[in-house]
Simulated scan of single mutants.
Amino acid sequence: MTQHRYPDGDRAAVYRVIRERRDMRHFRRGAIDPAVLRRLLDAAHWAPSVGYMQPWRFIRITDPALRRAIHAQVRAECEATAEACGSRADEVRRLKLEGILECGELLVAALADGRENYVLGRRTLPEMDLCSVACAIQNLWLAARAEGLGMGWVSLFEPDELSRLLNLPEGARPVAVLCLGHVDTFYPEPMLETVGWDTRRAMDETVFENVWGQPLDLPTP
Rank of each mutant, 00 (worst) to 15 (best):
A89L: 00
C131N: 10
R16N: 14
F27R: 04
E116N: 05
V175A: 02
D198K: 11
V14S: 05
Y6W: 15
A65K: 15
Y187R: 10
D217C: 02
W153S: 06
R88A: 11
V92K: 12
V92Y: 09
T81S: 04
S132E: 07
L216P: 01
V211I: 13
L95K: 08
G148V: 10
P221H: 10
R94I: 01
A84G: 06
S49M: 13
L156T: 02
I32F: 09
R200V: 09
R164M: 03
Y187T: 02
V211C: 06
L120G: 04
R145H: 07
G213R: 02
E20I: 14
F208Q: 09
E91N: 12
T185F: 05
E91T: 05
A47V: 07
R201Y: 06
A35D: 15
R25P: 02
C179E: 04
Y6N: 00
G30I: 05
V119K: 13
F27D: 00
P55E: 10
A80T: 08
A136Y: 00
I61M: 10
P219E: 12
T81R: 01
V211W: 08
Y15S: 12
R28C: 12
C85G: 01
A13G: 02
A72F: 03
R122M: 14
A89E: 05
A13K: 13
V211A: 09
C131G: 09
R22N: 08
F58G: 03
N167V: 02
E147I: 03
D90P: 00
P7E: 13
R29S: 11
L180F: 06
E98S: 05
A176P: 08
M24A: 03
A146E: 14
D198P: 00
G9L: 15
E77P: 00
A109V: 09
V195C: 06
V154C: 14
D129C: 11
S132H: 05
I18G: 06
G196T: 06
E147H: 13
L140S: 04
G196W: 04
G196Y: 09
E105W: 02
P159D: 11
H4R: 12
P215N: 00
L218P: 04
L37A: 06
E20D: 14
L106M: 10
D10Y: 09
L106T: 05
E161N: 13
T62I: 06
V207D: 03
T81Q: 03
D198T: 14
Y52C: 10
P174A: 04
C103N: 07
A110H: 00
T220L: 12
D113N: 11
R200S: 09
R60V: 14
A35S: 15
A43V: 05
E83W: 00
Q214A: 15
A172Y: 01
E127V: 10
W46E: 02
E205F: 06
I59N: 00
L218V: 14
Q73V: 03
L125T: 13
W46T: 05
A176G: 09
W197I: 06
P174F: 01
M53C: 15
D204C: 10
L218N: 07
L40I: 12
I137D: 00
H182V: 02
G30A: 04
